[in-house]
Design a binder for these strands. Structure first.
Length: 578
DNA sequence: GCCGTTTTCGGCCCGACTGTTTTCAGTCG
């Protein structure tokens, strides 16, 4: 993940928003948006490219290339700074609320001088929106609901955003002299879907050099607190990061303590008490004498309590301790177990990279197989046709012959229509190796309709995987309201797998839903839904989510050898229907 | 602003839904 690509993408997206808010040329805004997306998804660090290299990125022309150079040289883009000065940052934040776009955000600012979410709430409570043209009672309700949804995230950020920062901090601190170990702990290590703040641990004899370096990092914007054992900072992006430096001898105890979860740690400490021991972040001690038993490694602490080492993703007090005592902890799925990705896109629809680049990147990851699943025609904006799909299949077959060691599957991501129908009739679907089917619209149907709709998709013999089953967007949109137990039962009955979509905004199904689905005997596909080469790396979040739901290699169809996967796909086609 | 030419301009993903309006603008995927 390259820092400058992301920063520049964010900046260009901001400019696109500002153009939209100020009523500028909509096509120009769109051009900046497209460039932002292309740069965010570009596999090469733009800081290493010259003007010519920059313009080779799709949707980046002379003007935007110049602005990127300007940013790389001066750290800002004058034009964007200028527009920023005329529109308060809060106005743009309003656009993050569902139901509010640039036009309504601008109306709120110009007519009511609202320039923050809090200000908007106040205006609503004072009933000042009532007189505003284009704002009615329903809009008001939608806005309130949207704000509630945003605030429920409670300032927590996406797993991926936290991971990027943590990876960077760990890399920076690991280079310092005297660093025995350095890693992240907390909910990030447990791979929770959202993260409150980031905990970084260092094992070293002397803490001062680390605390000093931490405060001096280029992305440290503010030092919240600093001492010998703990320093807290806020990054330039507003994230809180805590650093704790432990003596190497306390590493295991500290790591165990700061990884949590709180509920898990309470259980473990209760066990310690029953063993007449006492567990703290400094180690495991004899309760009476206070003599240290062990503290250096997590494994030793768990072992002394009669437990195997418990993977962090399981430490949620969901039965992991009882299972550990019975020696029945699952052999969790790991990223190494994944043999292929079954849901990916190319630039034939809304992906960024051409087929050849996606395939080359997949081969680089060491996959044994890889499915290309571009959108089907019912998602009208993607302009798919039978001819385009068949032509792509020819290219896939040809590439497959060239690639030794990785088999290419030709698939599609079908759209599940309002009645549960999909884009193509059986005879056309039969030509695909694998079909993913997903809901992309009509989220507000009744519970019965949504349930029937999903079940009908499962019953289509050619549908092998239900993509992002709840369609939630974390912090933005709740999942659809269907009777998912009925859907899971249908999946089990028809041999249809459920997706664990690894996109950090989706993580869909989430851990709790996977646990429920598994009880119905369903199999899963852990996919990235990649729309660019860097997106392929989202597999780590899909696997993390799968781990949190106790999934093993046997539960996950794309962890199987190709032969077993093909058998699953074949049997699904035979046993679905009615 | 980008792109691809019918090569220096003219088109740019397109349709549905929703709420507000009184015939359509704004938002979304």
């Amino acid at each position: 993940m390259t820092r400058s690509n992301e920063d520049i993408a964010a900046l260009l997206q901001e400019y696109a928003d500002l153009i939209a808010i100020t009523g500028g040329d909509a096509f120009k805004a769109r051009a900046y948006e497209k460039a932002a997306r292309a740069i965010g998804g570009h596999p090469v660090d733009v800081a290493t490219l010259d003007a010519k290299g920059l313009q080779e990125i799709p949707n980046v022309g002379r003007s935007i290339a110049d602005k990127i150079r300007e940013y790389l040289e001066t750290g800002q883009i004058a034009l964007i700074e200028e527009v920023r000065a005329s529109i308060p940052a809060g106005v743009r934040e309003l656009m993050a609320i569902p139901a509010l776009g640039p036009k309504k955000a601008l109306a709120l600012y110009q007519e009511l001088e609202v320039s923050s979410v809090d200000g908007l709430l106040e205006a609503i409570h004072q009933e000042r929106l009532r007189d505003l043209r284009g704002f009615g009672q329903k809009t008001e309700e939608k806005i309130l609901h949207g704000i509630e949804l945003m605030q429920k995230a409670g300032g927590r950020i996406l797993l991926s955003a936290a991971m990027d920062v943590a990876d960077q901090v760990v890399a920076d601190l690991s280079t310092l002299d005297g660093c025995v170990a350095c890693t992240y702990a907390g909910s990030l290590r447990r791979m929770r879907e959202t993260i409150g703040d980031i905990d970084i641990l260092v094992a070293a004899e002397h803490s001062t050099p680390f605390m000093d370096a931490f405060r001096e990092l280029p992305y440290t914007a503010e030092v919240i607190a600093h001492g010998a054992k703990k320093t807290s900072i806020r990054t330039t992006k507003g994230l809180q990061v805590d650093l704790r430096v432990l003596p190497p001898d306390s590493w295991g105890a500290g790591l165990q303590y700061f990884t949590g979860s709180k509920a898990h740690n309470i259980r473990v400490r209760e066990m310690a008490v029953r063993h007449r021991l006492k567990l703290s972040e400094y180690g495991l001690f004899h309760a009476k004498s206070g003599r240290k038993v062990t503290s250096r490694r997590e494994e030793d602490i768990y072992a002394r309590l009669g437990l195997p080492w418990i993977p962090p993703t399981l430490r949620e007090d969901r039965g992991e301790i009882a299972a550990g005592l019975r020696d029945e902890l699952p052999e969790l799925l790991t990223e190494r177990d994944i043999r292929g990705d079954l849901h990916t896109h190319t630039d034939l629809t809304d992906g960024l990279a051409p087929l050849e680049e996606m395939v080359a990147a997949a081969a680089q990851r060491g996959y044994a197989y890889y499915a290309v699943t571009d959108h089907a025609p019912d998602l009208v904006m993607q302009r798919m046709t039978d001819e385009k799909m068949l032509a792509q299949r020819e290219r896939v077959r040809e590439l497959d012959r060239k690639h030794r060691g990785m088999r290419l599957l030709h698939g599609t991501e079908l759209n599940i229509g309002p009645e549960g129908e999909v884009d193509w009739p059986a005879e056309f679907l039969a030509g695909f190796d694998v079909c993913v089917a997903s809901v992309h619209s009509h989220f507000t149907q009744s519970r019965d309709q949504l349930t029937r709709r999903l079940i009908r998709a499962c019953e289509n013999p050619y549908v092998a995987v239900i993509g992002h089953p709840t369609t939630r967007r974390i912090g933005k949109r709740p999942g659809i309201d269907a009777d998912f137990d009925a859907v899971y039962a249908a999946c089990a009955r028809t041999g249809t797998a459920l997706e664990v979509n690894g996109h950090p905004e989706r993580l869909d199904l989430g851990d709790e839903e996977i646990l429920r689905a598994k009880r119905h005997g369903v199999k899963f596909a852990v996919d990235t839904d990649a729309h660019s080469v860097p997106d392929l790396a989202h597999m780590r979040y899909g696997v993390g989510t799968a781990q949190r739901a106790w999934l093993t290699e046997d539960d996950v169809i794309n962890a199987w050898p190709l032969q077993r996967l093909r058998r699953f796909l074949r049997e699904g086609r035979e046993c679905s229907g009615g």
